[in-house]
Amino acid sequence: MYVAFVVDTFSHRIVGWSAATLKETKLVLDALEMALRQRDRHGFPHTAGELIHQSNAGLQYASLRLSEHLDSVGIAASIGSVGDAYDNPLMESTIGLFRPCPTWSV
């Protein structure tokens, strides 16, 4: 199971998420679309050029499909360096909270 989160760095809230059995671009796009719908629903629709999508260098984040979608909605893309877990501590700490305890049974 793979999960993608979109975290608002101002509020430190998870504003979009998606889960899937495959680590594909759709996983990321679904989380992004949920985040954009949340902003609209709460009266803060995004304006082109005001948001930055920071991610790691995973294939699903570096895909042409995601890049084109971000460009079409006016969101700047920012990808961290390969193998650097310290380039995005907010997401690393969010994911650390989400990971299940090793004693949980599935």
Rank of each mutant, 00 (worst) to 15 (best):
R65I: 08
V15L: 03
G80R: 01
L59V: 12
C101G: 03
L64W: 06
G74F: 10
H42C: 09
S11D: 10
I14G: 06
S63P: 08
R65L: 12
A19N: 09
V6W: 00
R41D: 11
A35Y: 07
A20N: 14
L97Y: 13
L70G: 02
G16Y: 00
E24R: 14
S63E: 09
V6E: 01
A20W: 04
D30L: 01
S72V: 09
R39N: 02
W17I: 04
D87L: 02
V3F: 07
G43C: 07
V6I: 15
S72M: 07
I79G: 03
F5A: 09
L51I: 13
G74A: 12
L59I: 11
I95W: 12
I79K: 00
S18D: 07
L90G: 00
E92V: 14
G96V: 02
S55T: 13
L32I: 15
Y2A: 04
W17Y: 15
F5H: 03
G16W: 00
I79P: 05
R13D: 14
N56F: 03
E92G: 11
A57H: 13
H12T: 02
T25W: 00
T25M: 00
N56P: 06
G80L: 01
W104Q: 14
E92M: 07
T9R: 06
V15H: 02
S11R: 09
L70W: 01
E33N: 15
H12E: 09
P100I: 02
I52P: 01
D30C: 03
G80P: 01
R37D: 13
L97P: 02
L29D: 08
G58T: 10
M91F: 08
I52K: 06
L90W: 04
G43L: 04
G74P: 12
I52H: 02
G74L: 09
Y61V: 05
L36V: 13
E92K: 12
D84W: 07
S78F: 07
R65Y: 00
L36C: 05
E50P: 00
P45T: 10
R99A: 10
P45R: 08
D30W: 00
T9E: 06
R13P: 01
F5C: 04
P102W: 04
T21K: 08
R99C: 07
E68T: 10
Q38F: 09
S105G: 10
L29A: 09
S105K: 11
A77R: 09
A4Q: 04
V28K: 01
I95E: 04
L70T: 04
A76V: 11
G49L: 10
L51R: 08
Y86F: 11
L36S: 08
H53I: 00
D84R: 14
T9A: 15
L27F: 10
G83E: 09
P100C: 10
I75R: 04
I14A: 11
P89Q: 02
A85T: 10
S67M: 08
Y86T: 00
E33W: 05
N56A: 13
